[in-house]
Write a protein that binds this DNA or RNA. Structure first.
Lengths: 216, 216
DNA sequence: GTCTATACCGTGATAGAC
DNA sequence: GTCTATCACGGTATAGAC
């Protein structure tokens, strides 16, 4: 009692909820589990955040602004560096992805859990349409504009379908399911985010170029 | 009562469970909702399938064998056609994906729901490791072998990471969340599976070639 | 064998007392 | 901020109808 836990209870509730929602989804988690994980009483989550759904929203929103800022900064930095002709497809995708890698490799598991939660939401037919747009559309549209400039001959539909493929590859990476470990019999690891992005960037950039260059 | 519903109740339970699990996940669905959707009594699910988890498994397994067969057939057909030198990366990916498109476009929603359920499971850190391997590893390994032949200079890790990207793009497509509709302001539709695969095949094939050709 | 009605008992979210 | 009560709902078992 003399030594106070340095992390306030309110934050610990968010941390615990984040980890559990990411692993089991919204309905797979109870407030009691969250409270136990945070080392607080059940009712405290209610006191701070109201309903379970509001807590879910609060977790979702907590890190969004910071994440969006670092990705936008990365985009603007690569645009400034590229000068008038604008950055290449690779450079844009790099700016889209590397801030995630940095967040995932902070050592603190919070970001890893948060991004797994985004993967859960983005892949869900229920949550996806309800939650993704409000926080991420603005960012995505800015990246898509940049990609259109880098691929001036591309049709709009082609750009969007390519972005969809990129988003899918990213989502499965964020979900961090360990499936690639099994399939590759240990040659690759879901936790090796650097390897994931090192492959994803040239993979998707080549895909964009191929699809957006050809006329069907 | 004179006219009997042509679909037996046991199947209707599976159909209803399939649709609901795909939309809301395992914990987001109650047996009572499933029963209501099937137009049967709550206890009937228990009678036919036992525990909720067993019903989930039964849904997961019902269409798996048929799906695996049609994908393996497609692979063997393209291998036979290609002759000694073996099929190209595009042809292999085509064989991997097109049977899914055919299933999704039967008109009957069952396959669409089933494949959305696979997306849910594959993207879940909880269910993915527990369920994907048992039914799909054999198939995937056969496709990966074919890809290795088509890309003889590739390192194993590169092949697996490329497959991971393909799997992610596919998973998000199967999840059918409608997100691309919003982002593209109606120019693309999640329900347009043909467009999805028409783009995914050249996109991922180009990615495989790029990543598996270069030495880092 | 197939199916329904219903009861049981644990657990969940939430509100109100302190 | 915390503890506890409430009350609905969930999974599951049982009894028996057709």
């Amino acid at each position: 009692m003399a030594e106070k836990n340095p992390i306030p209870k309110r934050e610990r509730i968010l941390d615990s909820a984040e980890a559990l929602f990411a692993e089991h989804g919204y309905d797979g988690v109870t407030l009691r589990q969250i409270a136990k994980g945070a080392g607080v009483d059940v009712a405290l989550a209610n006191y701070h955040f109201g309903k379970k759904l509001d807590l879910f929203q609060a977790v979702f929103e907590r890190r969004a602004a910071h994440l969006n800022e670092s990705r936008i900064e990365a985009l603007h930095a690569c645009q400034a560096k590229a000068g008038k002709k604008g950055p290449s497809v690779e450079q844009i995708i790099e700016a889209f992805l590397r801030p995630l890698e940095l967040a995932q490799e902070t050592g603190d598991d919070g970001w890893r859990h948060y991004l797994a939660l985004i993967a859960y939401i983005n892949n869900s037919p229920y949550w996806g349409p309800r939650m993704m747009s409000q926080l991420f559309d603005e960012l995505v549209q800015e990246f898509i504009s940049a990609l259109k400039k880098a691929l001036p001959k591309a049709r709009d539909e082609d750009i969007y379908w390519c972005y969809h493929n990129l988003s899918g590859a990213l989502t499965l990476t964020l979900a961090n399911t360990g499936r690639i470990d099994k399939l590759s019999r240990g040659k690759c690891s879901s936790d090796d985010f650097q390897a994931a992005y090192d492959h994803m960037i040239p993979f998707t950039a080549a895909g964009f170029r191929k699809v957006c260059a050809s006329r069907s």
